[in-house]
Write a protein that binds this DNA or RNA. Sequence first.
DNA 1: GATGAATGAGGTTTCATTCAT
DNA 2: AATGAATGAAACCTCATTCAT
Lengths: 218, 218, 218, 218
Amino acid sequence: MACLRAGGGQGLKTGNLSRRERERLWQRKEMLAAALALFSEKGYHNVSMQEIAAAAEFAIGTLYKFFQNKEDLYKALVLEQADRFEAAFLAAIKGPGDELEKLRSFVRVRGEMCRNNLPFVRLFLAETKGASYNLKAGLDAEIRRKVDAFLEKLARVFESGMKNGRFQKIADPYALAVALDSVIDAFLLLWVESPERHPYPEDPDVILNIFFKGLINP
Amino acid sequence: MACLRAGGGQGLKTGNLSRRERERLWQRKEMLAAALALFSEKGYHNVSMQEIAAAAEFAIGTLYKFFQNKEDLYKALVLEQADRFEAAFLAAIKGPGDELEKLRSFVRVRGEMCRNNLPFVRLFLAETKGASYNLKAGLDAEIRRKVDAFLEKLARVFESGMKNGRFQKIADPYALAVALDSVIDAFLLLWVESPERHPYPEDPDVILNIFFKGLINP
Amino acid sequence: MACLRAGGGQGLKTGNLSRRERERLWQRKEMLAAALALFSEKGYHNVSMQEIAAAAEFAIGTLYKFFQNKEDLYKALVLEQADRFEAAFLAAIKGPGDELEKLRSFVRVRGEMCRNNLPFVRLFLAETKGASYNLKAGLDAEIRRKVDAFLEKLARVFESGMKNGRFQKIADPYALAVALDSVIDAFLLLWVESPERHPYPEDPDVILNIFFKGLINP
Amino acid sequence: MACLRAGGGQGLKTGNLSRRERERLWQRKEMLAAALALFSEKGYHNVSMQEIAAAAEFAIGTLYKFFQNKEDLYKALVLEQADRFEAAFLAAIKGPGDELEKLRSFVRVRGEMCRNNLPFVRLFLAETKGASYNLKAGLDAEIRRKVDAFLEKLARVFESGMKNGRFQKIADPYALAVALDSVIDAFLLLWVESPERHPYPEDPDVILNIFFKGLINP
DNA sequence: GATGAATGAGGTTTCATTCAT
DNA sequence: AATGAATGAAACCTCATTCAT
């Protein structure tokens, strides 16, 4: 959370803004931060707008100046954070190095982002893994579209590796992307639940070896 | 769903019971079936007790004779179904054949159970993957304990395969169990969302090859 | 008000009903009576559902069992009363006697109904005379349609009188109907505001003479 | 509306005022014009101060510099317009000609004023005919006092006509004034609702004949 | 034992009004 | 003097739960 409040300019440029506008942006961030903490802890339906307003130390009316309604607030929260995550993951797989290195980088960044944004990870897993009924109009679809678009890009890393002979054709590239993503999620889930018993591995190959090395003895 | 209503003896013995008791059990099952259908379709918070009572064709008061409150009803629903699933999965990995065959059997049964119980799968994925906030007291923990117990047993399949040389030691057996489970879940999730675009594979090796064959070209 | 509570079977038959149903009807009437008193005194927007519930001595939730929402309650109130009034007025102009007697009867019944239902008259004048913005969907239209339909019937009394030579053709029959209605309303309005200074005349001819006798000296 | 904004000197003299004061008067007029348009269209309770401020292109705070609160603004609006109307009606019945011509003139001016100030007419009818609950403190009384004062003056026209033998004594002069006023209102109401089906008559005698000629055939 | 009418706390949202800038 | 962001009371409405019948 601290990082969220402090972290400036995430997607929203604060360059040439009046004091007023900068203040409004800061207030918005405060509200989203309070909302994130609460939603993440108790879930969408168990958090009231009053609660969020109180946590953000604003009047309820002020909350409604920034967000049309509860759903709108929630969507803004999830989408803005999702964008940050997507950007970081894309940077990882578009970074330098061969396909192998890209995968390592992705696994590493995934861990870092999550370690630093635990509240959002809880929310995000709830949104993408759990059947989420909260989001009547579109967020669900929008999030899933984003995830899918990313998985396609990840699939292309596998595909490219297969084409240049670095990877074997053990499965459909998209299936591999889905599989890698879900395995990482599983490790993250274990870590979220009990960080001490199941730490997220520092070395990405601990996870990747499941894919790299064959299980069956030849 | 029909199977749920009709399906006798799932965990609850109906052997030597009075007519009264048998009727009560049948009523209870009706209620849970109606609740499952509604929760699965709309989510815990978007289903009212009135709605469940109406769907089950009982008075609201009768519902409360069987379940102390909404949460209690939900817990009973999830736990009883989870038991059925757990039993089926355990049977799969305790069945005949070597470790490889056990894994294949598990992947197959996982698919079958889910295909036949889509409403519950939706609910279950929401509960186990998504951070589930519904269940303030204990269900969460109880479910996760069950899942973990099963994962330990699955891990022991990998371990045994490693010991007798059938499997390579590519990773920690528990990690492998988690990974396999999550990959299957990922495929199920894809299937739940769009059964036509992403059918759950008939041949378990489509999934298992991700583990069996190494990705990296030697 | 007393008359409203006491007045049984006004349009709603209470003949072959179970005790339950009779009680529900009585409760509904209590609610409408409380609502009428409040709306009539303070206006639609200045009365809260809590207030109505308290006045009717029911819980707020019970109010909503009977009426979907505030507007629904208001519409039911206005329409049911309007029907009573319409019926009484129609009876007056369909009663025995020639056209002249019909008009006298109408003026008389108008006065009686209003004297006995002052709260509703206030509401009704507000609805039909004032531009009423309360009634988003349809009540406005429905009320005006009713009023217009009645005015047409009243016009036909004038028309018939003209045809059989009892009346002179001093103006368009519909215009005469509108004029008579509005003159009665004006007298009622004066009476509503200060019953002592401006009593509604016992003798209908006090009002009707405005129409019967010509003002200009020949 | 244009006439309202442009129309100078309506009751408020702008003669020897500083630029400041003239500007304030102009601003006030802008605000009242915006408020009139909105109130007339949507009704007192369905218009927010924010809305009025926005329509008048002032800050909400500025609105409150001119009017203590919403009710105050509304009262000012209604009273100032009512004064304009009263003045015009008084001029009509004080104008040249005998009693008959005064009545004709009144009917004519009534039509003109209303045709040119439809938004206010809607509001005014709502205020004077409908039981108006908006105006808790005094406006109601003040308006009605004005109306009554005018009706007394109109009554004196009838009275004078009776004294000099031009009119017959068919009814109490005040009752006749009330009746004429209400009949005109009724025609205006019809016109407001559907200007095409019920045009306000060009010839005042169409309305006045109801009074002038006796209905009953002698 | 079964019923479902009654309850009222608590949710979301609006808007008249204030006051620091 | 003008602004408009901030306020929070109060409105409408839902629904988990109880209890008299």
